[in-house]
Simulated scan of single mutants.
Amino acid sequence: MVIGWLRMGSWFTGSTSWGKDVVSSQVLQVAVAAYALASARKKRKWGGSVRGHITYDRERAAAAIRLENDYFGPNALYNEEMFHHRLSFSPKQKYVVAMKMLAYGSIVDALDDGQQYLRKPNAQELEHILAVNKARGFPGMIGSIDCMHWEWENCPSGWGGMYKGHKGKPTLILEAVATQDLRIWHAFFGLPGSHNDINVLQRSPVFDDLANGNAPPVDFTVNGNPYCMGYYLTDGIYPEWATLVKSISAPVSNKQQVFAKQQESCRKDVERAFGVLQAKWKILHGPTRLWKAKDLNAIMLACVILHNMVIEDERNVQLPTVGRNEWPGRDNPPLHHLVNIPSIDELIDAYSIIQDQSTARSLKSDLVEHMWTLYGSNSGPFARTTRQ
């Protein structure tokens, strides 16, 4: 800066005729240099990075202290119940996440417990689910399965035809399996909205562990007949598979009416889970405005994981806690790891058993009789009480 002022002083004295009469060039250069040094030492008047911008004292330190006192202090303004209502998590959960970041020195994504909250049930958890569903009249039922559409407002124009289905707008599909407590045990997201539930099921990995021989065994008896595979409750669009039980669209007899009523009642578990998922996380309720399908997939899976965390905290279900290193073998396969890799012929045979229609019809017929025994008899738990 000083050199610039000196050059300017040299040009000024050399380009004017009256400057030599007033003061010599050496004196003027010294004066300009002195002014430049004084200006360089003087503190600038503005505090921002751009001249003229005004800075405000936002009291960030005081805000941090208020936040800690309001939520985590000994006399907190928001107690644990209010904290849970506002942020959906207990203070202990938030505290543990922060402590993990400090202790392990890594980002949140590298330390999260997402896999714990989005996986298939192990043997002990499956036993609990089967017991609950057996009490509801469906022995061998693992859960209910269905699909949900999420509108994609900023879908690229070139993909509009592929992602536009019966909704009339571009959507992405989430296939999920839920149980009575609304916990989601399976989530398959990302297929275009032009697919129907059958197309999604044929591309879904929901039966991969069963076909590979890595799923926990499910043995049960209905109406005196044994079965060796669990099943899901579905709506009418799904195919007749041995692992899927649909309702009866036009029931005629009393037995069929009783079965249809109970099946449709229990099948709504997954629809209730979708409703709670969208109500809790508003980003899933309205059209998404993001551009990349990868970002939408991350958002959906994050919401499902958070949904399961909230469900477990609210329901207070006493399910066994299994660590990542506590999966002993075939009954409890590790996450994203196949214990048994079958051959192509074995895989085809396994899927032929899963998709066997004769077993599906026999299972539904036995469930109709079993439900009538429970619901239609005077001694069953579902019997209608008669007024005297």
Results as ranks from 00 to 15, higher is better:
S204I: 08
N214F: 04
Y78V: 03
A298L: 15
E153V: 05
G286W: 05
N332L: 08
L338F: 13
V317R: 02
P333F: 11
M99A: 03
H336C: 15
K167L: 10
P217C: 00
E175R: 11
E125R: 07
W281A: 03
Q115E: 14
N308H: 03
D70G: 00
G137P: 07
S144F: 08
K364C: 13
G275P: 02
S25P: 05
V368L: 06
A187R: 07
H337N: 05
G230F: 01
W159Y: 14
D366L: 08
I299R: 13
Y231L: 05
T243H: 02
P342G: 02
G114T: 06
M309R: 15
M82E: 15
A61M: 12
D21H: 13
K282E: 11
P342N: 03
V30H: 12
D295V: 08
N340L: 15
R51C: 02
G230S: 03
S265T: 07
W5N: 01
L87S: 12
I341W: 00
M141K: 07
E271D: 09
L284F: 02
M162T: 11
R119P: 03
N196Q: 01
R272V: 04
V270K: 06
V339F: 11
G213W: 05
M141I: 04
Y238D: 01
D57K: 09
I54R: 14
Q263P: 00
L28S: 04
R183F: 14
R387E: 10
S17L: 13
V27S: 11
W18S: 15
N378K: 12
L28T: 05
L37W: 06
M229A: 07
G52M: 10
R203W: 01
P226A: 05
G140A: 05
M1E: 06
S365R: 15
I173F: 01
R66M: 06
G14V: 00
M148Q: 12
T234L: 04
A350F: 00
S358H: 12
R387D: 08
S249G: 06
S352M: 15
P239M: 01
M229H: 14
K294T: 09
K292T: 14
I65M: 11
T321V: 15
K42V: 10
T385H: 09
N225G: 00
G230C: 02
V50M: 13
I145L: 15
I354D: 08
C266K: 13
A38S: 12
T373Q: 06
S10V: 01
N316G: 15
A40W: 10
G168D: 08
M309H: 02
R315S: 12
Q388D: 11
E151L: 12
R41I: 04
G137M: 10
S49N: 14
A360V: 09
L172N: 08
S15C: 12
V339A: 11
E346V: 04
A211K: 10
